[in-house]
Design a protein around this nucleic acid. Structure first.
Length: 255
DNA sequence: ATGGCAGGAAGCTCCTGA
């Protein structure tokens, strides 16, 4: 099973990119973040025509998540139970016996911002929820835009980013706390090229200059880690016309 | 030290992203 995640930064703009990527890479599941589209305007027909079943939880202008799957998903859950949040950032569903959780973690803006506090509180709530999900879903995969570069090797210039949002110690601890409840970062189960990133600022020719961060992740439960065969960042779409600033990431799991 | 690019909504400028 190939499980992918991609922050598309507007599905309306990136629909052609998504359809092309589905055709080329044939993922069994593709989770999207920052769709920025209300559910009534989601391009479900185009997705279905491409051979995928869509689930979506969106809003106008900001946020928005979706799960596209070759086999129709079941048991969809559009929020963390008991955690009221008007921002559409969570969507879970079961595909072929694998529980998929699609996350769009808050950015945080800056460590002085109220949004940073929201980010950390949000991560605490999500981690507490997921810690209880293993009991019912040992085959659990959590993917998405985490807006956290877990280690210095995930940052093009660790000195410049030291202590900044996306790299600060509390954020990295929140990421580590999520792994501790029972996940592996599938990307780090394998040898990877140096300077592997998933996001590059649109400004300053950051992509061409390899000035990126690895902030999009595919986490697999311990029960699935032994069956994980690869985790790959596909930088090709970042080279296209009107690209998303994020690259897709996908894991291949023997299921 | 600052802003730089892009998308969306509104409406010709602002907010947010990371």
């Amino acid at each position: 099973m190939r499980i992918a995640t991609w922050n598309v930064n507007s599905l309306k703009v990136r629909l052609p990119h998504v359809l092309a990527w589905l055709a080329t890479h044939q993922p069994d599941v593709l989770c999207l973040q920052e769709t920025k589209v209300e559910d009534t305007k989601f391009p479900a027909g185009d997705i279905l025509a491409a051979g995928y079943h869509p689930l979506y939880s969106g809003q106008k202008t900001y946020n928005g998540v979706a799960i596209l799957s070759k086999v129709a998903a079941t048991d969809a859950l559009p929020a963390v139970p008991g955690y009221a949040d008007p921002q559409k950032r969570v969507l879970a569903a079961t595909v072929d016996g694998v529980r998929i959780v699609c996350l769009y973690v808050p950015n945080g803006q800056s460590i002085e911002s109220d949004k940073y506090r929201y980010k950390l509180d949000w991560l605490t709530a999500v981690t507490a929820w997921l810690a209880g999900e293993f009991a019912t879903h040992p085959r659990l995969v959590v993917v998405g835009d985490f807006n956290i570069a877990p280690e210095d090797r995930d940052v093009h210039d660790p000195k410049a980013w030291e202590g900044q949002v996306l790299c600060s110690a509390p954020e990295r601890k929140a990421f580590a706390d999520l792994l501790v409840v029972g996940f592996k970062d599938s990307f780090r189960l394998f040898d990877q090229p140096a300077n592997s990133f998933t996001w590059w600022d649109y400004r300053m020719n950051a992509f061409r200059r390899k000035m990126g961060l690895r902030i999009d992740h595919v986490l697999v439960s311990a029960a699935l880690a032994a069956q994980c065969r690869a985790c790959t960042v596909d930088t090709e779409p970042r080279k296209s016309e009107r690209p998303s600033d994020h690259a897709p990431v996908y894991a291949d799991v023997d299921i």
